[in-house]
């Protein structure tokens, strides 16, 4: 019925890249991989584009003769057509600025690339913190269901859930004088509740399965549980990577 996910034994026999491209859904996998790779490469190495002579402008290069010039990409230019609102003369697009310049005459494209590395780094930090805290909280409330440990863990989860995130983040930003690490640690702690819920649900459903229950007298079930839980949550965590990193809006 559904062609995309139907099983075709011919696909199993072909090996290598040819076999991969014959799989259903391989095109979307390729497109997604290319987008992610472009983003990661741009974020990691884009800031060195000026030093490597790949791009003519540097992120801190101030040019007073071309401030606020619009993008040279025509699609973006129609989106941000502010000709009626602007009175000064430097409106005409300057060749070489793909996304235009800001009001100090700095090139926006290279500044976006420069900021993307920080974004990537901060996202990874946030996800790591929320994973650590979330797995601890979630396994506490999932494994010790109905005991004091569970109620403590679920209380912490509920409190973290009930924070008005933007208010807390603004306060933390002011206290820490807009330190990136403090903000990211706060965001990671606030995001831990989602991981905790996934983990506790997975552990609770796994705990009652036969192959865990049979081993309940040995040390082995904890290892089995943790292994299977990690398998269970990997997909969910990967899917939500984006939502962990974005603004808490």
């Amino acid at each position: 019925m559904n062609k995309r996910f139907s099983y075709n034994p011919e696909n199993e026999t072909a090996k290598g890249m040819a076999g991969f491209f014959r799989q259903p859904g391989s095109l979307s996998i390729m497109i997604g991989t290319v987008i992610i790779l472009l983003f990661v490469i741009g974020a990691l190495f884009g800031q060195y584009a000026y030093q490597l002579n790949l791009y003519p402008h540097s992120p801190t290069d101030v040019q007073f003769d071309r401030f606020d010039s619009p993008p040279t990409l025509s699609v973006l230019r129609t989106l941000f057509d502010r000709r009626e609102l602007m009175e000064w003369e430097y409106y005409e697009p300057v060749r070489g600025h793909i996304l235009g310049t800001d009001n100090d005459g700095r090139d926006i494209f290279i500044r976006v690339l420069n900021g993307a590395s920080t974004y990537l780094y901060a996202g990874v930090l946030t996800v790591l913190i929320s994973l650590l805290l979330g797995i601890v909280l979630g396994s506490m409330s999932g494994y010790y269901r109905g005991r004091v440990t569970e109620s403590i863990a679920s209380y912490i989860t509920n409190v973290l859930d009930a924070y008005p995130r933007v208010v807390v983040l603004i306060i933390v930003a002011f206290i820490s004088h807009f330190n990136l690490y403090a903000i990211m640690i706060t965001l990671g702690i606030l995001n831990a509740t989602r991981v905790a819920r996934i983990v506790s649900g997975t552990i609770e459903s796994l705990k009652n399965t036969d192959f865990i229950w049979r081993q309940r007298k040995s040390v082995y079930p904890i290892l089995l549980l943790s292994e299977n839980t990690l398998y269970g949550i990997t997909a969910a965590i990967c899917c939500r990577f984006k939502s962990y990193t974005d603004l808490p809006a």
């Binding site: 209380y155 509920n158 409190v159 009930a162 924070y163 208010v167 807390v168 306060i171 933390v172 002011f174 206290i175």
Partner: peptide, 16 residues
């Protein structure tokens, strides 16, 4: 839960 959230926000605000 409300007690927990308001208390921690109060502690954070106290630093200001």
């Amino acid at each position: 839960v409300l007690f927990g959230t308001t208390f921690t926000i109060y502690l954070l605000l106290g630093q200001l």
